[in-house]
Design a protein around this nucleic acid. Structure first.
Length: 211
DNA sequence: TATGCGATATTCT
DNA sequence: GAATATCGCATAG
């Protein structure tokens, strides 16, 4: 029998309340998608039934033709997911230690995406903390590499449809979004002044304050 | 809190 | 061989 209320300590927290985003809800435009994703939820349900999720509080746009974008030099064996239609995962490995996830944007055949840079942990915080070596709550997903680690996202998820019925998906917000703030992007060497980083103002889970 | 630095592997030159 | 959309630790203030 099923508990009608969420009183059981071992029950996963109100995951049924999370509604999958449909692709038609995602703006096709890269910058608009980057803004749209702030406040949305990223969900990863494991086979064991544990659900890990977080509010997206920081993104960066890498629009078509951006010299700092991975698609800038054209399609290769590793960046193909950026050229899919919007809503697919592009996962790559960087600096010898970190995976990072983008959400593909624009139309099929156009290489662009939105980097997910930070989450505010919502569900499965115990599992996230284990995956992150016992880091404090604030640091569990503060930064793109930490986000991928906390969500157990690796190369296997490259090319996955985040709007499909898979274990990793995008969901509607759990509460209203705060004020959106804008700054230059982090860690790049070209087009460094473009205001293409978006974050929720005041969030303690954002990777860095703008300068 | 801010800054500096080394580790690390994949990709493209 | 070089570059890289980073992290964690160290140190100083």
């Amino acid at each position: 029998m099923k508990a009608r209320k969420n009183s059981g300590a071992s029950n996963p927290p109100v995951v049924a309340g999370l509604r999958r985003l449909r692709r038609t809800e995602l703006p096709a435009d890269t910058v608009r998608l980057a803004r749209y994703l702030i406040g949305k939820t990223l969900v990863h349900s494991t086979r064991g039934g544990v659900v890990v999720s977080g509010r997206i509080v920081e993104t960066e746009a890498y629009p078509p033709g951006d010299p700092s974008g991975h698609a800038f030099r054209g399609k290769t064996a590793s960046n193909g997911s950026l050229f899919l239609e919007r809503g697919f995962a592009y996962v790559y490995f960087c600096y010898g230690s970190s995976f990072m996830m983008n959400v593909s944007s624009e139309r099929p055949g156009i290489g662009a995406g939105v980097l997910i840079r930070a989450l505010e942990p919502l569900h499965g915080i115990g599992l996230m903390r284990r995956r992150r070596g016992g880091a404090p709550l604030r640091d569990l997903a503060r930064g793109p590499g930490r986000t991928a680690a906390a969500m157990a996202i690796d190369r296997r998820y490259d090319g996955l449809d985040l709007c499909g019925r898979h274990s990793l998906w995008l969901a509607a917000p759990t509460r209203r979004r705060g004020v959106l703030a804008v700054s230059p992007r982090i860690g790049i060497t070209r087009a460094v002044d473009h205001p293409l980083r978006f974050y929720e103002r005041g969030s303690r889970f954002v990777s860095r304050s703008s300068r």
